[in-house]
Design a protein around this nucleic acid. Structure first.
Lengths: 140, 140
DNA sequence: CGGTCAAGTTGTACTATACAACTACATGCG
DNA sequence: CGCATGTAGTTGTATAGTACAACTTGACCG
């Protein structure tokens, strides 16, 4: 078995390799929805709507970045803003019908890509890999 | 145990989460060396020098992108070009002394960050996680 | 030799991003 | 109440990274 240092080195190298490719791959797969846009939409879906500030905090993005991303998503008709009646400063963001459908399509095709890529993994390895990734990300 | 679909979903979600954060984290950690520059330098180190075209092919980047990255690294004195005597079109890229030292520093501090983050993982989990990442990336 | 191919550079454009300055609204204290 | 301070979001500006297309230079083959 490799020792601790070897494993750390490998983890670092392979995660880096993955990160480098991810955006480009995502962009090629879905020219219509960047990795960032995609994750913002999934967050809106999971949270059933949230504020721009929440997105910025959750994804460690500047609020100006989120503001522009949201503006673009709104232009595309994927997202809509509803002013919070409790606080006029706040815009609660929601997926539109079109946004929901688009997200479903992209999610489906991403899922297919992952399925193919992991087709020859057995169920136990998949479960363990998933658990490790969760644990890793949770430690951030 | 989660079923196959659950695991695939988790893997997809967690890898995406990681990818989204990686660049920003790397940038904060090492303002002097972006994730891309860092990986280009490590490739030069591993390969003991290579051509710009090789970098482009390996990292799925356009040759113009690599050309500019390399120009920047040369400006910083991290990389030098040596025209291949066999073929005047080719520039073989090498780390400079300064490049080697800078890369070592960044690598060391990245290693420390990973060590801290994975400090409470036991050796077996690390080895397995490393193996899964290797296997995953190899399937690309 | 001349045509075709390969390596690399440069022009141009676009996206994602940050930071700073600003507007609009909210809230709480004197 | 009314101003001070704080929060949500937008806009101006700048930068990095990237792609694609057009170009230059050199290699190689028939």
């Amino acid at each position: 078995m490799p020792d601790r240092t070897d494993s750390l080195e490998t983890i670092q190298r392979e995660l880096t390799k993955f990160a480098r490719r991810a955006r480009a791959t995502a962009a090629r797969m879905h020219p219509e929805l960047s990795l960032v846009s995609y994750t913002l939409l999934t967050h809106l879906q999971d949270q059933q709507g949230c504020r721009a500030t929440d997105l910025a905090a959750h994804y460690l993005l500047d609020k100006s970045t989120v503001s522009r991303q949201v503006a673009a998503l709104e232009q595309l008709g994927l997202v809509e803003r509803r002013v919070d009646p409790e606080d006029q400063r706040v815009q609660v963001l929601h997926l539109t019908e079109h946004g929901t459908r688009t997200l479903e399509q992209v999610t489906a095709s991403r899922r297919t890509a992952f399925q193919q890529r992991l087709a020859d993994w057995d169920e136990e390895d998949l479960a363990r890999f998933a658990a490790y990734l969760l644990r890793y990300n949770a430690s951030a």
